[in-house]
Design a protein around this nucleic acid. Structure first.
Length: 394
DNA sequence: GATGCCGGGGG
DNA sequence: CCCCCGGCATC
């Protein structure tokens, strides 16, 4: 779905180039994208009516966004800030509300689109729109005043102009239309000079359809590029995910959803570093809590299982009653005590049920050696109890 | 044998 | 829980 949204967004960029095509995506990013998504969603069912859908979109666009346009654009020139604030407030301070409901249904796509668009060098209002929508769901009135004012007053005018394609801008758009068509299918990027050829390419190669199928959906999978755009467009699809504001979106998404497949691949550095650190903390209480550790580790691979409890440990470290004087030392020892090795040993030696594995004698002098048996009262508690020394950890 | 420390037990 | 010790592994 994300790809669809982004594609729709890219179409938005290029749509001005095919003005005569009357491509709907031409509308403003938000709506256009939303419509595009909807079309994609309903492709199976309402596709037949899509030929008219373009008309509908063209009509509905000014309608939806025209909620403010009719009164706002003409009046906004003279409208004072109070009036603007009132209007904006009445509009729920959120373009999302104005936009078709699909957008609410597809927040992810919205963000995807915004990211790619802003990255692919789209017009300014694009990034404005999405920045406000995605990152600030409920901005303050003043903020909205500024942003929305710019957005609607400038952006929508642009849209209208472009939609009409009567202005010089439109002519420029048309001049670009003699470019090539780039397939936006993920990983494809094929460039063809013929629109029909591109549609066929998408239909056959990507959609796997016969020619009898709809010939509108392909529009979402290619974009028109001019000779100059060809240089800027290519990097947009893939790298856009790793740059700019979009990075935060994608990263948060991927992280918030601990996909069992994403985790190992994307956060491999994390997955490698996290366990060790966690283990260090975890083993901090090894002295008292070896049984829990054994439980979490011995099952074998499942790293997630073992980390989860460790998180708790990390939250409240050293709560268990360590002797006050030896806590810090114990930490040092436990940190240096190669927790991973310990875990390996434990998991590898099932014969030893508990953490009864015996660590090789460290080279560090223990209390016994330092103070001698005669000064046993100066030993650390563990040494006195014949436990692992906490004062001089290995 | 000395040392380090786990497991267990007594109070 | 505190303290001690048997016993084992390692040096």
């Amino acid at each position: 779905m994300a790809a669809v949204g982004s594609r729709a967004g890219l179409d938005t960029i290029s749509m001005c180039t095919e003005g005569q095509d009357g491509l709907v995506y031409m509308q403003c990013c938000g709506q256009g994208e939303g419509v595009g998504v909807q079309k994609k969603l309903n492709a199976g069912t309402e596709w037949s009516a899509d030929g008219n859908a373009q008309q509908t979109n063209l009509l509905s666009f000014p309608q939806s966004s025209g909620v403010d346009l009719p009164y706002r654009s003409p009046e906004s020139v003279e409208m004072d800030e109070i009036m603007a604030a009132m209007v904006l407030t009445s509009l729920s301070c959120s373009p999302v509300v104005q936009s078709p409901p699909q957008r609410d249904l597809l927040p992810g796509d919205m963000e995807c689109c915004g990211g790619e668009l802003s990255d692919s060098g789209s017009s300014g209002y694009w990034s404005w729109d999405h920045g406000n929508v995605s990152t600030a769901p409920s901005p303050s009135v003043t903020e909205m005043d500024r942003s929305l004012g710019q957005l609607t007053d400038e952006g929508l005018h642009m849209e209208l102009d472009q939609a009409a394609c009567e202005e010089p801008e439109a002519r420029r758009c048309k001049s670009l239309s003699r470019g090539a068509y780039r397939c936006l299918w993920p990983g494809c990027g094929k460039v063809l000079t013929s629109r029909v050829g591109m549609k066929r390419h998408i239909r056959i190669l990507h959609l796997g359809w016969g020619s009898e199928q709809s010939h509108r959906e392909e529009d979402f999978y290619y974009t028109e590029v001019s000779s100059e755009d060809e240089e800027t467009a290519p990097p947009s699809p893939a790298p856009s995910f790793s740059s700019g504001a979009w990075t935060s979106c994608s990263s948060t998404q991927s992280q918030s959803t601990p996909g069992p497949q994403d985790a190992p691949v994307q956060s491999s550095p994390l997955s490698q570093s996290a366990p060790s650190s966690v283990w260090q903390i975890h083993t901090e209480h090894l002295y008292q809590a070896c049984a829990p550790i054994q439980v979490t580790v011995s099952p074998g691979s499942p790293t997630f299982c073992s980390w989860t409890p460790s998180g708790d440990v990390q939250q409240k470290p050293q709560i268990p009653a360590f002797r006050s004087r030896s806590v810090s030392v114990g930490e040092q020892w436990l940190q240096r005590n190669s927790a991973p090795t310990r875990s390996q040993t434990m998991s590898a030696s099932p014969s030893r049920g508990h953490c009864s594995f015996r660590k090789g004698r460290g080279e560090a002098k223990k209390c016994r050696k330092v103070y001698g048996v005669e000064r046993r009262d100066q030993w650390c508690t563990a040494c006195r109890w014949k436990k692992a020394c906490q004062r001089f950890p290995d």
